[in-house]
Structure formats: structure tokens, C-alpha cells
Design a protein around this nucleic acid. Structure first.
Lengths: 188, 188
DNA sequence: AAGAACGTACAGAAAAAACTGTACAAACCA
DNA sequence: TGGTTTGTACAGTTTTTTCTGTACGTTCTT
């Protein structure tokens, strides 16, 4: 490192290009609920030509190893990064999941699915309770009207979540690629 | 208001049901990059039987009108809430967009599309610059190898974003419903 | 078995985001 | 036109999140 000044200059030019890509992609990763610096960490790993250790990341990001640890775990939870085993090194090594289609799918499977399930659960419960109340207040027209309206809203919402659930299914089972085929990356 | 104690008690029972739904749905709205309290605001509007003013929301949420203003704007930007015109009142009125399929689509059109575009832009630029560098460093095999690797990554990423772009197209033009049909909400 | 290296839990500091109250511009009313 | 009413910009405060350094348990090495 730092022996050949020519090599360093070349590195600098390439680094500048990488930095801009990392910056942009990292910034847009807030869609995945990821902080800016974790997004940058992801970008760093994306361009790394080999799996990296926490210490290497810390050096590169100029941040503490603790932060790298938590950042990597966030990415690991979303399966955006994989732990890699390499004989020799006893440090943990990480590399990005380069299959971005898979990353996209995993994100929905992990985050959206959980949300869909808990929402459907609460909607089901609420509908049940309203059904009970409808028996209880059968003689009160005003109340019945409110219950009817609320139940209709709950059922519409429930139908939507069923749809969303099946949409996520198509991500997982690959049916989505029948509708929207993957593009082969261009040659040149 | 507050005249008939029986009515109030009924209201309380229904309110409890609503609160739990609002709480759950609101919490899960962080997927849309929305804070918890804005999520609650959305839930409030979801159950409101008529369009609400900022003051009404503030009273209900026990929060300042300023917060309601910013919260509503967030929801408005995502088209989760619509401004409603009603003759007589000179206050602004808001109601939720009850077509959740539309809300889903709008979210991707607004947030993801923007992200996809900026990422594709930066990837295109970076690829161009690498192409230039490849001419410049044609005699340096080590450098060429790095450039080749980076370019391959950029192109893979680009292909993915093209796919994502077309996926969002299917949300917008409704083709997605050919693959995953909407469910009619159940009767009872 | 002793020592060193590694990753993370935890508490405190720093930074960012959410919330409030005041002030003011625009729209409306009389 | 003068006086209200309504929505929001802005500055300051509170709350939440992110980041760091230390401490410690675990694993590997010799």
C-alpha cells in the first residue's frame, strides 16, 4: 500500500466514481428503512472485491467497529449481506448479496409480510368484535349504522391485505418473473 | 356531545376497537417511511365518518395544529390522503384515500420510481466514465481487471433497476392485477 | 491452561427527527 | 377597508436515533 504513486492516482479516479455510486445508492436505501451510514456501508461492500472484516470496514468508513457491527447486523437481518466462511482468517467475513432480485424478494418477505400478517390479525379480531356488538345493539339504529360502516372499512382493508399477501407470494415463488421477466445485463 | 351517557359508553366500546386497529396499522406504516404519530393520524382519518379539519385532528390526537399540518402534508405527498372541498366551511378538509390498491401503487410511483431513476442515472454515468478509463489504462492489466469487475457490477445493478422500473409500470397500468387479481371483499 | 484476538452488550455522548408555540401571510367576511 | 380566521414558516425544545468507548464473554492459539 502506498508504494507506487501512479497506482494510487488511478485508485483515486476509480474511487471517485465508486463514491458517487455508493452515495446515491446508499441514500436511496432509506426505502428499506436503513440509515444513511448503513446504506454507505452496503455500498462499500458492494464494490469490495473480496469479503471484508469489521475492522476493514471501520477503517474504510472511518467509523467505530461497534457501528460496523450493528450496521452489518441490520444488513444481515435483511439478508442484504451474507456471512462468508474462509479458512485461515478467524475473523468474520461479510459480502453483499449480489442477487438484487433476491434482495428485493427477501425484503418483502421479511418486512412487508410481517406487517401484512399483523394487520390481518388485528382486522380479523376487530371484525369479530363488531359482529358481537351488532347482536348486542340490534335495536339501536344509529349504533348499527356506525358498526356497519366500520365493518365495511375493515373488510375492504382485509381484502387488500389478502391481495398484498398473494403479491408477495409471487415474488417468492418467482411467478412475478412471468409477468415481468428478468433482463439479461447488456454485454458492453 | 356528552349528553347521553348510554351513547357515550357505546362509543367507548367502539373506540377501543378502533384504537387497536389504528395502533397496529399506524405502527406498520413505517414501511412507507412514515412516523408513528403520522401513522396514527392516518388511522384516525381512516375511521372518520367524514372529512376532518386540522383542528379536529388536533383535538382528537391531542397534538398541536402545527403537527397536524405537517403530518397531513406528508400523507398528502404520498397521496394517502386527499383534500376535499366542501361549500360552507372555509377550512381545509381531508379524508383518506380508501382505495388502498391505489395507495400502494402511488407509493411505488412516488418513492421507488424516484429512487430507481436516480440510481439508474448514477449507474449510467459511472459506466460511461469507466468506459473512458478503459481506453486510458488499456496497457495496465491490473487496472483493467478492476475496471472490468466494477463495470460488470454496475451493469448487473442496472439490469435489476430496469426490471424494477417495469415492475412499477405493471402497478401503474394495472397489469399486475392480471397476475394477482383483486379480491372482492367478503359479504358478511 | 494461559494468553490473545474477536465480536457485541451497554452506557453515555452526539446527531437527527419530531413536536410545540409564536408570528405572520393569505383568504375571507362584514 | 379593517378585522377575523386559517394554514404554515420558523426557532427553540423535547424525544428518538445513531455513534462511540469501555468492558466482557467466547473462541482460537500455543
Amino acid at each position: 500500500m502506498g508504494l507506487d504513486p501512479g497506482k494510487e492516482a488511478q485508485h483515486a479516479a476509480l474511487d471517485k466514481i465508486r463514491k458517487r455510486v455508493i452515495e446515491t445508492i446508499g441514500r436511496n436505501m432509506d426505502l428499506y428503512g436503513i440509515s444513511l451510514s448503513t446504506g454507505h456501508l452496503y455500498g462499500l461492500l458492494f464494490f469490495a472485491d473480496k469479503p471484508m472484516t469489521l475492522d476493514e470496514m471501520g477503517a474504510e468508513m472511518k467509523m467505530s467497529k461497534t457501528s460496523m457491527s450493528t450496521g452489518v447486523r441490520t444488513l444481515l437481518d435483511l439478508k442484504m449481506v451474507n456471512k462468508v466462511w474462509e479458512k485461515g482468517s478467524r475473523k468474520d467475513l461479510y459480502e453483499v448479496e449480489y442477487d438484487w432480485y433476491q434482495t428485493f424478494t427477501d425484503f418483502f418477505d421479511i418486512k412487508w409480510r410481517k406487517s401484512v400478517e399483523s394487520n390481518m390479525m388485528v382486522l380479523r379480531k376487530a371484525t369479530d368484535e363488531i359482529n358481537k356488538m351488532e347482536k348486542e345493539y340490534a335495536e339501536d339504529p344509529e349504533m348499527m349504522e356506525m358498526l356497519r360502516k366500520d365493518k365495511a372499512k375493515l373488510q375492504d382493508a382485509f381484502a387488500y391485505y389478502q391481495w398484498l399477501d398473494r403479491l408477495i407470494d409471487t415474488f417468492e415463488n418467482g411467478d412475478i418473473y412471468k409477468l415481468v421477466p428478468k433482463v439479461p445485463p447488456r454485454e458492453n
